[in-house]
């Protein structure tokens, strides 16, 4: 569960990115974060995986106040959260190694790595592309590797910042079906997006942020912007 109580984020240059956010996202939900560029979506997302700390207010992840967490414990908070980006952020190694890298980094016993990586790559539909390098994969395939990497550690949340931003419509839909599938298996998904068609078709909870404030929060809502 993610909770925010009166959260403000003011950057060093004085920009007020978030101005009093109150929100609660329950376990197993699928939430779209929408809003114009520069409205505070990215900041909102960064607070969730503790890339940023709130200037004021409380962010609770599974009941843990992320502002109070000691630095050395932050990695343990992050292990509960998978993150996916618009630009994939894959390393220049095979799909298999990219996913295994995440498990190695948290010191998973070696014998457990191989079966788990194969399982997740199968889930995202890349069993036959396991040893391909990112340059040999299409954008959609690369994003699926990135998703596999994000969920390989069984996180409670998957946070996606414009996951379809770099993809053509067909690949975008494939990614959305995959995210839906992951959500059905119990992972909470929070996804920032500009894709009107997706939001309006795969109806889920929609949180709209404008000028650092939540202006709308409705279950099964519409995208609501013309871009």
């Amino acid at each position: 569960m993610i909770e925010m109580h009166d959260v403000w984020k003011v950057y060093d240059n004085g920009v007020e990115a978030l101005r009093g956010i109150n929100v609660k996202i329950d376990r197993g939900e699928f939430v779209y974060i929408v809003g114009p560029s520069g409205a505070g979506k990215s900041t909102f997302i960064k607070l969730m995986y503790r890339e940023e700390k709130p200037t004021h207010g409380v962010v609770l992840i599974n009941g843990v106040n992320v502002k109070r967490v000691r630095d050395w414990k932050i990695p343990h908070v992050r292990r509960k959260i998978g993150v996916v980006f618009q630009d994939f952020k894959l390393l220049n190694m095979t799909a298999y190694d990219n996913v295994a890298f995440a498990l190695e980094a948290i010191e998973t016993p070696r014998r457990k790595i191989r079966p788990r990586v194969e399982e997740v790559l199968e889930l995202v539909g890349l069993s036959d592309r396991m040893f391909a390098y990112p340059s040999q994969l299409s954008g959609g395939e690369q994003q699926r590797v990135a998703i596999a990497r994000a969920i390989v550690n069984n996180p409670s949340f998957l946070i996606a910042d414009e996951p379809t931003g770099n993809l053509d419509p067909e690949n975008s839909w494939d990614i959305m079906y995959l995210l839906e599938e992951i959500n059905k298996r119990g992972t909470t998904i929070v996804m920032a997006t500009h894709n009107k068609e997706i939001v309006n078709t795969l109806r889920q909870r929609v949180i709209a942020i404008e000028q650092g404030i939540i202006v709308r929060d409705e279950e099964g809502g519409e995208y609501g912007y013309e871009d």
Binding site: V77, R78, G82, F101, E107, N153
Partner: peptide, 16 residues
């Protein structure tokens, strides 16, 4: 730096 960024994201400990 890219590897480091990914390690942080997936929750590698600071000492790791």
């Amino acid at each position: 730096r890219q590897e480091i960024e990914i390690m942080r994201l997936v929750g590698a400990s600071n000492w790791f």
